[in-house]
Design a protein around this nucleic acid. Structure first.
Length: 424
DNA sequence: TCTGGGGTCCTAGGACCC
DNA sequence: TCTGGGGTCCTAGGACCC
Protein backbone atom coordinates (compact mmCIF):
# COMPACT_ATOMS: atom_id res chain seq x y z
CA UNK A 1 0.00 0.00 0.00
CA UNK A 2 1.30 3.44 -0.88
CA UNK A 3 1.68 5.75 2.09
CA UNK A 4 -0.23 8.99 2.15
CA UNK A 5 1.51 12.32 1.94
CA UNK A 6 -0.20 15.46 3.15
CA UNK A 7 0.82 19.00 2.40
CA UNK A 8 -0.25 21.95 4.50
CA UNK A 9 -0.28 25.22 2.59
CA UNK A 10 -0.59 28.25 4.85
CA UNK A 11 -0.60 31.92 3.86
CA UNK A 12 1.96 34.07 5.65
CA UNK A 13 0.50 36.77 7.92
CA UNK A 14 -2.63 36.49 5.81
CA UNK A 15 -4.79 39.47 6.83
CA UNK A 16 -1.79 41.79 7.07
CA UNK A 17 -0.57 40.59 3.66
CA UNK A 18 -4.01 41.25 2.14
CA UNK A 19 -3.92 44.82 3.42
CA UNK A 20 -0.40 45.36 2.07
CA UNK A 21 -1.29 44.00 -1.33
CA UNK A 22 -3.09 47.17 -2.39
CA UNK A 23 -0.78 49.56 -0.55
CA UNK A 24 2.72 49.22 -1.99
CA UNK A 25 3.70 52.20 0.16
CA UNK A 26 3.34 49.93 3.21
CA UNK A 27 5.67 47.26 1.87
CA UNK A 28 8.32 47.58 4.62
CA UNK A 29 6.08 49.06 7.31
CA UNK A 30 4.77 47.22 10.37
CA UNK A 31 1.06 46.49 9.88
CA UNK A 32 -1.49 45.02 12.28
CA UNK A 33 -5.11 43.98 11.71
CA UNK A 34 -7.65 44.22 14.52
CA UNK A 35 -10.51 42.00 15.64
CA UNK A 36 -14.11 43.15 15.40
CA UNK A 37 -14.73 46.37 17.31
CA UNK A 38 -11.04 47.21 16.87
CA UNK A 39 -10.45 45.32 20.11
CA UNK A 40 -7.43 43.03 19.75
CA UNK A 41 -4.62 42.37 17.31
CA UNK A 42 -5.48 39.31 15.22
CA UNK A 43 -2.79 39.57 12.52
CA UNK A 44 0.67 41.11 12.30
CA UNK A 45 3.05 41.65 9.42
CA UNK A 46 6.63 40.40 9.75
CA UNK A 47 7.77 43.88 10.80
CA UNK A 48 5.05 44.10 13.46
CA UNK A 49 6.04 40.70 14.87
CA UNK A 50 9.64 41.90 15.03
CA UNK A 51 8.51 44.78 17.26
CA UNK A 52 7.27 42.20 19.75
CA UNK A 53 3.55 42.79 19.18
CA UNK A 54 1.82 39.65 20.46
CA UNK A 55 -1.13 37.90 18.87
CA UNK A 56 -4.37 38.75 20.66
CA UNK A 57 -3.08 41.73 22.62
CA UNK A 58 -5.68 44.50 23.19
CA UNK A 59 -5.08 47.55 21.02
CA UNK A 60 -5.04 50.02 23.92
CA UNK A 61 -2.11 48.20 25.53
CA UNK A 62 0.19 48.77 22.56
CA UNK A 63 -0.76 52.34 21.69
CA UNK A 64 2.65 53.73 22.77
CA UNK A 65 4.46 51.15 20.64
CA UNK A 66 2.24 51.98 17.70
CA UNK A 67 2.99 55.68 17.92
CA UNK A 68 6.69 55.18 18.45
CA UNK A 69 7.18 52.91 15.45
CA UNK A 70 4.51 54.22 13.11
CA UNK A 71 2.64 50.91 13.04
CA UNK A 72 -0.17 51.00 10.49
CA UNK A 73 -3.47 49.76 11.92
CA UNK A 74 -6.41 48.24 10.03
CA UNK A 75 -9.89 47.15 11.13
CA UNK A 76 -10.67 43.67 9.82
CA UNK A 77 -12.06 43.65 6.30
CA UNK A 78 -13.47 40.16 5.83
CA UNK A 79 -14.90 40.83 2.40
CA UNK A 80 -11.36 41.48 1.16
CA UNK A 81 -9.79 38.50 2.93
CA UNK A 82 -12.50 36.07 1.84
CA UNK A 83 -12.12 37.14 -1.77
CA UNK A 84 -8.32 36.74 -1.79
CA UNK A 85 -8.65 33.44 0.06
CA UNK A 86 -10.94 32.11 -2.67
CA UNK A 87 -8.34 33.06 -5.29
CA UNK A 88 -5.56 31.24 -3.43
CA UNK A 89 -7.72 28.15 -2.90
CA UNK A 90 -8.72 27.96 -6.56
CA UNK A 91 -5.04 27.80 -7.51
CA UNK A 92 -4.43 24.98 -5.02
CA UNK A 93 -7.44 23.12 -6.42
CA UNK A 94 -6.03 23.42 -9.91
CA UNK A 95 -2.64 22.00 -8.81
CA UNK A 96 -3.67 19.14 -6.49
CA UNK A 97 -6.28 16.42 -7.00
CA UNK A 98 -7.66 16.65 -3.45
CA UNK A 99 -7.87 19.76 -1.33
CA UNK A 100 -9.38 20.36 2.10
CA UNK A 101 -9.91 24.05 2.74
CA UNK A 102 -9.17 24.07 6.44
CA UNK A 103 -9.55 27.76 7.24
CA UNK A 104 -9.53 31.10 5.50
CA UNK A 105 -5.76 30.99 5.09
CA UNK A 106 -4.77 27.32 4.98
CA UNK A 107 -5.50 24.10 3.15
CA UNK A 108 -4.45 20.47 3.36
CA UNK A 109 -3.55 18.71 0.10
CA UNK A 110 -3.32 14.99 -0.57
CA UNK A 111 -0.06 14.48 -2.46
CA UNK A 112 -0.05 10.70 -2.49
CA UNK A 113 0.26 10.80 -6.26
CA UNK A 114 3.54 12.69 -6.18
CA UNK A 115 6.10 9.93 -6.26
CA UNK A 116 9.40 10.73 -4.54
CA UNK A 117 11.10 13.25 -2.32
CA UNK A 118 12.71 15.21 -5.15
CA UNK A 119 9.37 15.50 -6.87
CA UNK A 120 7.68 16.56 -3.62
CA UNK A 121 10.09 19.35 -2.95
CA UNK A 122 9.82 20.57 -6.54
CA UNK A 123 6.04 20.41 -6.37
CA UNK A 124 6.05 22.55 -3.22
CA UNK A 125 8.28 25.19 -4.72
CA UNK A 126 6.27 25.38 -7.91
CA UNK A 127 3.04 25.73 -5.96
CA UNK A 128 4.47 28.48 -3.83
CA UNK A 129 5.75 30.41 -6.84
CA UNK A 130 2.44 30.05 -8.62
CA UNK A 131 0.35 31.39 -5.73
CA UNK A 132 2.81 34.25 -5.35
CA UNK A 133 2.63 35.17 -9.04
CA UNK A 134 -1.15 34.91 -9.39
CA UNK A 135 -2.28 36.51 -6.14
CA UNK A 136 0.69 38.31 -4.57
CA UNK A 137 0.20 36.23 -1.44
CA UNK A 138 3.19 34.33 0.00
CA UNK A 139 2.52 30.82 1.30
CA UNK A 140 4.62 28.22 3.09
CA UNK A 141 4.34 24.51 2.35
CA UNK A 142 4.94 21.63 4.78
CA UNK A 143 4.77 18.01 3.63
CA UNK A 144 4.61 14.85 5.76
CA UNK A 145 2.83 11.49 6.20
CA UNK A 146 0.26 12.89 8.70
CA UNK A 147 -1.58 16.15 9.10
CA UNK A 148 0.03 16.85 12.48
CA UNK A 149 3.52 16.39 11.02
CA UNK A 150 2.58 18.49 7.98
CA UNK A 151 1.61 21.27 10.39
CA UNK A 152 4.97 20.96 12.10
CA UNK A 153 6.75 20.99 8.73
CA UNK A 154 4.85 24.15 7.85
CA UNK A 155 5.94 25.85 11.07
CA UNK A 156 9.53 24.97 10.20
CA UNK A 157 9.10 26.40 6.71
CA UNK A 158 7.94 29.65 8.28
CA UNK A 159 10.52 29.79 11.03
CA UNK A 160 13.68 28.88 9.12
CA UNK A 161 14.25 31.16 6.09
CA UNK A 162 16.91 28.82 4.71
CA UNK A 163 14.12 26.39 3.78
CA UNK A 164 12.79 28.83 1.21
CA UNK A 165 9.31 28.31 2.65
CA UNK A 166 9.07 24.63 1.69
CA UNK A 167 9.82 21.67 3.99
CA UNK A 168 9.59 18.02 3.05
CA UNK A 169 9.29 16.07 6.29
CA UNK A 170 8.70 12.59 4.88
CA UNK A 171 12.02 11.26 6.20
CA UNK A 172 11.67 9.87 9.76
CA UNK A 173 15.22 10.95 10.69
CA UNK A 174 14.36 14.48 9.72
CA UNK A 175 11.07 14.33 11.62
CA UNK A 176 12.92 13.44 14.81
CA UNK A 177 15.55 16.12 14.35
CA UNK A 178 12.89 18.79 13.97
CA UNK A 179 10.70 17.48 16.81
CA UNK A 180 13.66 17.55 19.21
CA UNK A 181 13.95 21.29 18.54
CA UNK A 182 10.32 22.29 18.91
CA UNK A 183 8.43 22.76 22.20
CA UNK A 184 5.42 20.52 22.79
CA UNK A 185 3.14 23.57 22.84
CA UNK A 186 3.80 24.03 19.12
CA UNK A 187 2.21 20.70 18.24
CA UNK A 188 -1.19 20.95 16.57
CA UNK A 189 -3.85 20.00 19.14
CA UNK A 190 -1.71 20.86 22.17
CA UNK A 191 -2.98 24.12 23.63
CA UNK A 192 -1.87 26.08 26.68
CA UNK A 193 -3.51 23.87 29.29
CA UNK A 194 -2.35 20.56 27.86
CA UNK A 195 1.18 21.90 27.33
CA UNK A 196 1.32 22.84 31.00
CA UNK A 197 0.20 19.40 32.15
CA UNK A 198 2.54 17.65 29.72
CA UNK A 199 5.51 19.66 30.95
CA UNK A 200 4.65 18.69 34.52
CA UNK A 201 4.87 15.09 33.32
CA UNK A 202 8.33 15.76 31.90
CA UNK A 203 7.24 16.10 28.29
CA UNK A 204 8.87 19.26 26.97
CA UNK A 205 9.52 18.80 23.27
CA UNK A 206 7.47 17.46 20.40
CA UNK A 207 9.87 14.50 20.35
CA UNK A 208 9.16 13.73 24.03
CA UNK A 209 5.47 13.53 23.15
CA UNK A 210 6.12 11.37 20.09
CA UNK A 211 8.06 8.94 22.31
CA UNK A 212 5.38 8.72 25.00
CA UNK A 213 3.39 5.50 25.31
CA UNK A 214 0.04 6.00 23.52
CA UNK A 215 -1.80 3.80 26.05
CA UNK A 216 -0.43 5.78 28.97
CA UNK A 217 -1.34 9.04 27.22
CA UNK A 218 -4.84 7.79 26.60
CA UNK A 219 -5.29 6.90 30.25
CA UNK A 220 -3.84 10.12 31.65
CA UNK A 221 -5.06 12.52 28.98
CA UNK A 222 -7.58 11.55 26.29
CA UNK A 223 -8.09 9.79 22.99
CA UNK A 224 -7.44 13.11 21.29
CA UNK A 225 -3.92 13.40 22.68
CA UNK A 226 -3.32 9.72 21.95
CA UNK A 227 -4.17 10.38 18.33
CA UNK A 228 -1.70 13.26 18.31
CA UNK A 229 1.05 10.92 19.56
CA UNK A 230 0.30 8.47 16.76
CA UNK A 231 0.24 11.23 14.18
CA UNK A 232 3.64 12.46 15.36
CA UNK A 233 4.94 8.95 14.68
CA UNK A 234 3.82 9.16 11.09
CA UNK A 235 0.62 7.17 11.53
CA UNK A 236 -2.14 9.10 9.79
CA UNK A 237 -5.25 9.20 12.00
CA UNK A 238 -6.89 12.31 10.56
CA UNK A 239 -8.14 11.91 7.02
CA UNK A 240 -8.41 14.59 4.38
CA UNK A 241 -11.96 15.92 4.36
CA UNK A 242 -12.75 17.44 1.02
CA UNK A 243 -16.41 18.04 1.71
CA UNK A 244 -17.03 20.19 4.73
CA UNK A 245 -19.59 18.40 6.92
CA UNK A 246 -22.78 20.40 7.53
CA UNK A 247 -22.79 22.78 10.47
CA UNK A 248 -24.27 21.59 13.75
CA UNK A 249 -24.77 25.04 15.17
CA UNK A 250 -24.80 28.61 13.96
CA UNK A 251 -23.74 31.41 16.28
CA UNK A 252 -24.16 35.10 15.70
CA UNK A 253 -22.75 37.30 18.44
CA UNK A 254 -20.95 40.61 18.77
CA UNK A 255 -19.43 42.86 21.36
CA UNK A 256 -21.04 46.28 21.18
CA UNK A 257 -19.16 49.40 20.11
CA UNK A 258 -20.70 51.05 23.19
CA UNK A 259 -22.25 49.34 26.20
CA UNK A 260 -25.97 48.71 25.97
CA UNK A 261 -28.13 49.73 28.93
CA UNK A 262 -31.67 49.87 27.54
CA UNK A 263 -34.06 47.11 26.61
CA UNK A 264 -34.94 48.76 23.30
CA UNK A 265 -31.35 48.74 22.13
CA UNK A 266 -30.81 45.16 23.21
CA UNK A 267 -33.95 44.10 21.41
CA UNK A 268 -32.76 45.73 18.20
CA UNK A 269 -29.39 43.99 18.51
CA UNK A 270 -30.96 40.59 19.18
CA UNK A 271 -33.29 41.00 16.20
CA UNK A 272 -30.35 41.82 13.98
CA UNK A 273 -28.25 38.85 15.14
CA UNK A 274 -31.19 36.48 14.85
CA UNK A 275 -31.94 37.66 11.31
CA UNK A 276 -28.34 37.14 10.33
CA UNK A 277 -28.30 33.66 11.87
CA UNK A 278 -31.52 32.77 10.05
CA UNK A 279 -29.91 33.86 6.79
CA UNK A 280 -26.92 31.61 7.46
CA UNK A 281 -29.30 28.78 8.33
CA UNK A 282 -31.09 29.11 4.99
CA UNK A 283 -27.69 29.17 3.31
CA UNK A 284 -26.98 25.79 4.92
CA UNK A 285 -30.42 24.57 3.77
CA UNK A 286 -31.37 23.51 7.25
CA UNK A 287 -34.20 24.11 9.70
CA UNK A 288 -33.48 24.71 13.38
CA UNK A 289 -35.49 23.53 16.36
CA UNK A 290 -33.45 25.10 19.17
CA UNK A 291 -32.53 28.72 19.83
CA UNK A 292 -30.24 29.95 22.61
CA UNK A 293 -29.86 33.56 23.69
CA UNK A 294 -27.01 34.91 25.80
CA UNK A 295 -25.90 38.30 27.13
CA UNK A 296 -22.73 39.35 28.95
CA UNK A 297 -21.58 42.27 31.03
CA UNK A 298 -17.88 43.18 30.94
CA UNK A 299 -16.03 40.32 32.62
CA UNK A 300 -12.81 42.35 32.74
CA UNK A 301 -14.30 44.98 35.01
CA UNK A 302 -14.35 43.59 38.54
CA UNK A 303 -15.96 46.69 40.02
CA UNK A 304 -19.04 46.31 37.89
CA UNK A 305 -22.00 44.04 38.73
CA UNK A 306 -21.86 40.96 36.48
CA UNK A 307 -24.77 39.30 34.74
CA UNK A 308 -24.37 36.49 32.17
CA UNK A 309 -27.75 34.96 31.46
CA UNK A 310 -28.17 32.21 28.89
CA UNK A 311 -31.45 30.53 28.02
CA UNK A 312 -32.80 28.24 25.34
CA UNK A 313 -36.16 27.59 23.74
CA UNK A 314 -37.42 24.86 21.48
CA UNK A 315 -39.39 25.87 18.40
CA UNK A 316 -42.71 24.02 17.96
CA UNK A 317 -41.45 22.86 14.56
CA UNK A 318 -38.02 23.18 12.95
CA UNK A 319 -37.97 26.42 10.99
CA UNK A 320 -35.84 28.85 9.00
CA UNK A 321 -38.40 31.64 9.10
CA UNK A 322 -36.78 34.84 10.35
CA UNK A 323 -40.04 36.04 11.90
CA UNK A 324 -40.57 32.91 13.99
CA UNK A 325 -36.95 32.84 15.13
CA UNK A 326 -36.99 36.53 16.02
CA UNK A 327 -40.24 36.12 17.97
CA UNK A 328 -38.68 33.25 19.95
CA UNK A 329 -35.51 35.23 20.65
CA UNK A 330 -37.57 38.19 21.88
CA UNK A 331 -39.55 35.90 24.17
CA UNK A 332 -36.29 34.70 25.74
CA UNK A 333 -35.02 38.26 25.99
CA UNK A 334 -38.17 39.38 27.80
CA UNK A 335 -37.62 36.61 30.33
CA UNK A 336 -33.93 37.20 30.98
CA UNK A 337 -33.50 40.97 30.63
CA UNK A 338 -32.52 42.85 33.81
CA UNK A 339 -32.25 46.61 34.09
CA UNK A 340 -29.24 48.18 35.73
CA UNK A 341 -26.40 46.38 33.94
CA UNK A 342 -24.02 47.63 31.27
CA UNK A 343 -24.11 44.89 28.65
CA UNK A 344 -20.98 44.37 26.61
CA UNK A 345 -21.95 41.53 24.33
CA UNK A 346 -24.91 39.43 23.28
CA UNK A 347 -25.60 36.67 20.83
CA UNK A 348 -27.85 33.89 19.71
CA UNK A 349 -27.18 30.31 18.72
CA UNK A 350 -29.25 28.04 16.50
CA UNK A 351 -28.94 24.27 16.91
CA UNK A 352 -30.75 20.93 16.50
CA UNK A 353 -30.87 21.05 12.71
CA UNK A 354 -33.07 19.13 10.28
CA UNK A 355 -33.04 19.04 6.49
CA UNK A 356 -36.29 20.48 5.08
CA UNK A 357 -39.11 17.99 4.78
CA UNK A 358 -37.95 15.15 7.03
CA UNK A 359 -39.15 16.23 10.45
CA UNK A 360 -41.89 14.01 11.83
CA UNK A 361 -44.14 16.08 14.08
CA UNK A 362 -46.09 14.19 16.72
CA UNK A 363 -49.87 14.09 16.79
CA UNK A 364 -50.28 17.09 19.02
CA UNK A 365 -47.89 19.44 17.32
CA UNK A 366 -49.90 20.88 14.54
CA UNK A 367 -49.02 24.54 14.29
CA UNK A 368 -49.25 24.88 10.54
CA UNK A 369 -46.15 26.48 9.00
CA UNK A 370 -46.85 29.84 7.49
CA UNK A 371 -47.63 29.14 3.86
CA UNK A 372 -45.93 32.17 2.42
CA UNK A 373 -42.77 31.67 4.47
CA UNK A 374 -40.53 29.92 1.92
CA UNK A 375 -41.17 32.42 -0.85
CA UNK A 376 -40.84 35.43 1.42
CA UNK A 377 -37.57 34.28 2.98
CA UNK A 378 -35.99 33.46 -0.35
CA UNK A 379 -37.06 36.86 -1.71
CA UNK A 380 -35.50 38.50 1.35
CA UNK A 381 -32.21 36.68 0.78
CA UNK A 382 -32.19 37.47 -2.94
CA UNK A 383 -32.65 41.19 -2.36
CA UNK A 384 -30.07 41.32 0.41
CA UNK A 385 -27.51 39.47 -1.71
CA UNK A 386 -28.10 41.64 -4.78
CA UNK A 387 -25.99 44.50 -3.44
CA UNK A 388 -28.72 46.94 -4.49
CA UNK A 389 -29.93 47.57 -0.99
CA UNK A 390 -31.29 45.61 1.90
CA UNK A 391 -34.57 44.98 3.62
CA UNK A 392 -35.02 43.86 7.20
CA UNK A 393 -37.54 43.66 9.99
CA UNK A 394 -38.44 47.01 11.53
CA UNK A 395 -37.56 45.60 14.95
CA UNK A 396 -33.86 45.58 14.00
CA UNK A 397 -33.87 49.35 14.29
CA UNK A 398 -32.05 51.88 12.17
CA UNK A 399 -30.02 53.95 14.62
CA UNK A 400 -27.56 51.53 16.08
CA UNK A 401 -24.94 53.55 17.89
CA UNK A 402 -23.91 50.32 19.59
CA UNK A 403 -22.85 48.92 16.21
CA UNK A 404 -19.37 47.53 15.68
CA UNK A 405 -16.46 49.92 15.77
CA UNK A 406 -14.36 49.84 12.57
CA UNK A 407 -12.35 53.01 12.54
CA UNK A 408 -9.47 51.78 10.40
CA UNK A 409 -11.29 50.00 7.60
CA UNK A 410 -9.62 49.63 4.21
CA UNK A 411 -11.67 49.87 0.99
CA UNK A 412 -13.34 46.76 -0.50
CA UNK A 413 -10.73 46.72 -3.27
CA UNK A 414 -11.87 43.51 -4.90
CA UNK A 415 -15.58 43.30 -4.22
CA UNK A 416 -16.99 46.79 -4.79
CA UNK A 417 -16.64 48.64 -8.11
CA UNK A 418 -16.30 52.05 -6.54
CA UNK A 419 -13.40 50.82 -4.40
CA UNK A 420 -11.32 49.44 -7.27
CA UNK A 421 -7.75 50.63 -6.87
CA UNK A 422 -6.67 53.16 -9.51
CA UNK A 423 -3.32 53.04 -11.29
CA UNK A 424 -2.01 56.50 -12.03
C1' DT B 1 -11.95 54.17 28.68
C1' DC B 2 -10.43 50.57 25.58
C1' DT B 3 -10.02 43.16 25.89
C1' DG B 4 -13.03 39.07 18.81
C1' DG B 5 -16.06 35.63 16.71
C1' DG B 6 -17.27 31.14 15.20
C1' DG B 7 -16.74 26.57 15.42
C1' DT B 8 -15.64 21.26 16.88
C1' DC B 9 -14.93 17.26 19.81
C1' DC B 10 -14.57 14.69 24.19
C1' DT B 11 -15.75 13.55 28.92
C1' DA B 12 -18.15 13.12 33.18
C1' DG B 13 -22.25 12.79 35.47
C1' DG B 14 -27.19 12.41 35.89
C1' DA B 15 -31.65 10.55 34.32
C1' DC B 16 -33.85 6.82 32.80
C1' DC B 17 -34.73 2.12 31.24
C1' DC B 18 -34.59 -2.90 31.45
C1' DT C 1 -36.71 -5.23 54.56
C1' DC C 2 -33.56 -6.61 51.29
C1' DT C 3 -31.89 -3.17 46.81
C1' DG C 4 -27.38 -4.81 40.71
C1' DG C 5 -25.45 -3.79 36.65
C1' DG C 6 -25.31 -2.31 32.15
C1' DG C 7 -26.78 0.51 28.34
C1' DT C 8 -28.28 4.93 26.20
C1' DC C 9 -29.22 9.63 25.88
C1' DC C 10 -28.63 14.32 27.19
C1' DT C 11 -26.20 18.29 28.97
C1' DA C 12 -22.64 21.22 30.82
C1' DG C 13 -18.09 22.20 30.91
C1' DG C 14 -13.51 22.02 29.24
C1' DA C 15 -10.17 21.91 25.76
C1' DC C 16 -8.78 22.86 21.28
C1' DC C 17 -8.58 25.23 16.52
C1' DC C 18 -8.22 29.45 13.32
Amino acid sequence: MATTTFALVDCNNFYASCEKLFRPDLKKRPVVVLSNNDGCVVARSREAKALGIEMGVPLFQIQPLIRRHGVVVFSSNYALYADLSARVMSILEAEAPQVEVYSIDEAFLDLSGVANAVALERFGRRLRARVQRCTGITVCVGMAPSKTLAKLANHAAKRYPATGGVVDLTDPQRQRRLMALRPVAEVWGIGRRLAQRLRADGIDTALDLARADPKWIRRHYSVVVERTVRELNGESCLALEELAPGKKQIICSRSFGQRITTFQEMRAAICQYTSRAAEKLRGEQRLAKMLTLFMRTNRFNRNEPQYLPSSSAELPLPTDDTRELVATAIRLLNASWRDGYRYMKAGIMLSDFYPPGVYQPDLFEHTPPRRDARALMSLLDTINRSGKGSIFLASQGTQNHWAMKREHLSPAYTTRWSDLPRVK
